[in-house]
Every structure is written in structure tokens, then in C-alpha cells.
Design a binder for these strands. Structure first.
Lengths: 154, 154
DNA sequence: ACCGCGAATGTTATATTATAACATAACGTT
DNA sequence: AACGTTATGTTATAATATAACATTCGCGGT
């Protein structure tokens, strides 16, 4: 499990960062998008699109899937969330200003996904793409297994 | 696009390899599983589960989704096919005896997915997992972009 | 050959994830 | 206010995947 003294601080920080980033880039960070980002951040772990939908539903009336997916698309395009392909889920980006060299360590036990950066890894990936004459646009790198905490517990 | 003089040779080779591997491991390589593997190999590219279902449908009567997914699960568990999470599709494994250090270069233009091996990459991934106290079980590494052939054409 | 067990398949139904297509509203610029 | 662009609402449905239970198949033991 992820530890943070006050998770509300994490959420607030994420929203503040998003405010700033969108302001800088002249993007419209609407109430919907903000709300969806807030719900993504409700936990530190991966969140399903339909769980977000359900939570929106209970607060505001009659939100439909396209609304959620559009917001998630916007957030993902701008690096504020990531889609974890292997889980069909979304997770808030913990460092949206430099999220090109990221990968995820996903624990099958506790369900947490840790976002990591490693330029060495990015270098090897670039190099190997290059050797294949391949122009890389996007990399999905998700490692599933058991995290330190869960190993220690067992 | 992938080049092979006679694609039927690729398919036959893949099936023969599968026969051998299953025999060695005492696995039941049933007609269904064989047929599904054959259909996965019908092209060199990624194949959707429901496309396999449709093709089976037209030949044999009334095959249902669970049949296809079960066969694909069997094949994936035994390293004969890979699921490409970012595409929600499946692709035949071109070297099923050593498929632990693999990644895919997926071209968004022609749709081909090239399976590559690179132990250096595997080393960096292992190392970085280890540094995080993470016991890695499975790695999804999919790089999307533009392949050499498509770059040359444009 | 028959039995019995576990593995594989059949079958029905449904869950889950995601998008197409078109209508309306909000927003900023002139 | 009029306009174009961007965002949202709305309806419907597409695409992907699995649960749950019934039946059949293949194989080892007798």
C-alpha cells in the first residue's frame, strides 16, 4: 500500500499542478475534467473508468460514459493521467512535467502501481528502437509482480 | 509490411513448433487450439479475438467467445502467442522457446508488430525492478511509432 | 472393456470497456 | 450580438471479455 500522511494533500497538490499546467498551456481545465482528475486521485492506485463514472453518478446526475472517456482522454493527452493498458485502468501521473521516461511497477497482490523514471531505461529503449529503424512515439512499459511491501508481509 | 516468400511456410513452421513444444511438455494441443493458433498466424500482424471467432464461425458452426478466449489463454500461457495490451490483440510468438526478453515495435501506419529480443533491455528492466524491491513476473513492453518501411515510403 | 477423474469444450447469459454520431451549450473573439 | 471553435449532452451500440453451469472427451487404473 502507498503511504501518505494526508492523502487529501496529494489530491490537492495534483489538482494545483494541473491548474498550473493547463493555465500555462492555454488549455481549458473545466469542472468536469477537474472532477474526473480528482476522482482518479481518490486513491493512489489504478482506477477504472466505470468506477469514476459511478462516483460521478452519485454526486451529479446522469453522467454518461463518453463524458468520462473524453475527460480521461484530455487528461492523458496532457500527461496528467496514464492509462495502464495491462489493467484497463487509469492512474494519476505523479510528475506530469517530465513523464516521458516512465514505467510502472504493478503489484498483483495489493494492486498498487508505482510510477518510476529511469533515463537509462529510456536510453536503451530509444537505442533499440533506433537500431530497428523505428521512430518511437509512445512506450507502454508495465511490469507486474510483487512489490516490496507485499513481499515483506508474506 | 512483413515480407515472407511463402507465408504458408511460416504458418506450418509455427504449428510444427507448437506441436513439438506441447508434446515435450505433455500439453494437450487439441484441434481447437491448433486451429486458433493457425488463425492467429494467418497474418504476421496482430489479430483480434473476434476476428478469429468470425473466421472459425464461417468454417465450423457456432463457436462462441469463451472457446476462442480459452484457446488464446492456453496459447499465451505456453508462450505460443502474445497479447498486445495496447492493441487488445494477439500475435503469434516467433520464437516461443525463449520469449522472456521480448518487446514489440508496433507501427501505427501499417499495423505490423515486430517482436524483438534484447537482453540488455531485459537486464535494465530486471535491475530497475530489483532496485525497487520488486519481484517482476511479467513485463509488457510495447513501443508504438513508425517502422522503417513506412518511414521510407513517406 | 469399463469406470472414474480431471481437463476440455459447449452453452447461455451477461459483464465490462469503449466509441460513433448527432444535438446542444459554453466560451472567446470580433 | 454573430461567429466559429471547443466542450458537453444524449442515444445507441460496438467491441472485448468472463461467469457459471452442463456436457463430453481422453486417459490411467482395474
Amino acid at each position: 500500500m502507498h503511504n501518505c500522511d494526508q492523502h487529501s494533500d496529494c489530491v490537492e497538490e495534483a489538482l494545483r499542478r494541473a491548474d498550473n499546467i493547463c493555465a500555462e498551456r492555454g488549455l481549458r481545465f473545466t469542472q468536469q475534467r477537474r472532477k474526473v482528475l480528482e476522482l482518479v486521485w481518490e486513491s493512489h492506485g489504478p482506477v477504472k473508468a466505470y468506477d469514476i463514472l459511478d462516483r460521478l453518478d452519485s454526486r451529479i446526475a446522469a453522467i454518461k460514459p463518453p463524458t468520462v472517456y473524453r475527460a480521461l482522454d484530455f487528461l492523458a493527452e496532457n500527461g496528467l493521467v496514464h492509462r495502464l493498458d495491462s489493467l484497463k485502468a487509469f492512474i494519476g501521473c505523479s510528475h506530469p512535467l517530465k513523464h516521458r521516461e516512465c514505467y510502472f511497477l504493478i503489484c498483483t497482490d495489493c494492486g498498487e502501481a508505482k510510477e518510476c523514471c529511469n533515463s537509462e531505461l529510456a536510453d536503451v529503449i530509444n537505442e533499440t528502437s533506433h537500431n530497428n529503424g523505428f521512430r518511437a512515439e509512445h512506450t507502454t512499459l508495465e511490469i507486474t509482480g510483487e512489490c516490496r511491501d507485499c513481499r515483506d508481509t508474506h
